[in-house]
Design a binder for these strands. Structure first.
Lengths: 182, 182, 182, 182
DNA sequence: GATGAATGAGAATTCATTCAT
DNA sequence: TATGAATGAATTCTCATTCAT
């Protein structure tokens, strides 16, 4: 019954569905069943609501990271990392969340609003991936990490926005082959 | 002195800079130094202007494709493809164009408007990449093509939107190593 | 001090004076001394405002109907009906209201918006007139009612829109002679 | 192939269908297959086009008047008048024309534009009807004429704008009974 | 904390009309 | 006579935000 939370949840749902710009505060109010005044009582402005929504979503990402098996050999950790990421991507309930992520990050106007949160998360990701890659081999580990993350994002992007089939499982197989069986 | 063209160019510039939604027709008029009426005389909608802008940009992409050296051995063609893409990406005057591309494609509202143009271009890309990959090896060539395109897009995305340095040349080197020297 | 009501009243006044299409929402705002936003806060559309205005006017019509003396003999009731209608028509403060009525009903675009309200009122009128005519004589009472209503509307129309004199009192006399002294 | 005439015809058709205000000059151009410039070359402005259209329609009215049998006895002439009017009203190809007439005359903004043409036609009508009524009986003939015309217009109005059936033939019968068999 | 009336800036779009060719 | 590019004012409507209660 925390109305603040209710508003955030309504906002996330609508931002994911229609994008930030195409979601009016009115629509959020209707969805959350609260008055306009209350939204601006809890949040300084609409931008603040975007930050809050983005931060909430970041939680999901962190939860996913927690599922990586970091106990085995470096190579096994890499495999676990890849599989965890692909599993998360394939989850239908994550689809819109990830789409929203891309949406917000590719839009100059929205990206600006959450620039610091993006940087933070980026560092977090690089930390995890970097630790695995440097354990496998020091050589170029930084570059290899950056490349890996970029490739993953590319795959996610294509998977999330392709209406025609993007065969994620075959892609995963191929991707694993490249990274784990050279 | 073709005002229609002037409008398109102004639109592209502003769409690239601020995104479609954040660019008002008024702003385009001001930039192109024409009246509001003229925009709607030449283009049915703001949407139509987006399509026109997107199509114009597609030309750039096709020009780039023309630069690929398709005469040599399959492996050489792949190398030429990769280098051509990275070269284009690195060109400062292409930066905003490509950013605009991602921006428009990740936004549900704008993506819808140009869905057909996206599909068309996607097929074009797959044709070129597919021909090279199947020449190298029939096995999984389709999947390998899809993966390749996705990875490229991921790299482009990270390069284009990273304010901090994304070392494109080192990434290119690493990427080539993976694809051309196994 | 109810601004919603203020807007409706301003709208009626202007719709009556200039017609619906020729009345801009801005003009209504100015007249009602409210902001543009408020009109659309209270009414979904300009159309909704038309409906509201038309409904308000319908009230006047119903009030008039309440003045008919329904106690006497059928013939007396008919006389009362006719006199009540002509009295209402002749009232200067009703003039614009009735003009607006015709205006809105003869315009395909506006008629459509209030089609249901027109139908409702039409039934109401037919109910009253029909009850009187069938009390006078069952024979053809339905047709005679329709004809009566049409004739009344024709008279109203000519009276309301004639700039040169339309001698309403003599017309009334003649009309009564036809209906009440055959 | 007289383009001027073509424009008028297109205008009439569209004015009848959608009303004057809801018909843009562009629409007329499209329909007449001519350029915007040409319309304003032939007609000073849109209002002039309305006048031209209204005048053209007036011709139809006059043609109808020519069909009245003015040879017989006054009573027979009245009967012929009534029948001619009802016949014309019932013609499907006249329906929109008459609707347009009412539309234009009930709208303050359009009525003003053609005020003189309305007055002219009104006099014409009164002349014909008046001559018949005064031939029947001098007493009150002016008033009886005015009332007759008003009643006819009322009937026309109800017939033309009633979507539900308005039984024109039964109404005609009843109307004739009133006027011709007392 | 909670409401919703109220604001005002700004958006896309329409349209009659002008004018150079 | 004929075209259609060009204008600019006007229109409906949206929306983030404020504020009195």
């Amino acid at each position: 019954m925390d109305k603040r939370q209710l508003i955030i949840e309504a906002a996330i749902e609508l931002f994911c569905l229609n994008g930030f710009d195409k979601t009016s505060t009115s629509a959020i109010c209707t969805k959350a069943n609260v008055s306009k005044g209350l939204v601006f009582h809890h949040f300084k402005n609409k931008n603040e609501l975007l930050r809050e929504a983005f931060a909430t979503i970041a939680t999901v990402v962190e939860e996913v990271s927690g599922k990586i098996d970091m106990t085995g050999q470096p190579k096994d950790r890499l495999l676990s990392l890849i599989n965890t990421i692909f599993d998360s991507m394939a989850q239908p309930e994550h689809r819109r969340l990830y789409q929203f992520n891309f949406n917000v990050m590719m839009q100059p106007s929205t990206r600006e609003i959450i620039a610091d949160l993006i940087a933070e998360r980026s560092q977090f990701q690089r930390g995890i991936v970097g630790s695995i890659f440097s354990a496998i081999s020091e050589e170029n580990s930084h570059i290899r990490s950056l490349l890996f993350i970029a490739e993953i994002d590319g795959i996610a992007m294509h998977y999330l926005f392709s209406e025609e089939e993007f065969p994620l499982d075959l892609i995963r197989e191929q991707f694993i082959k490249k990274y784990c069986e050279p």
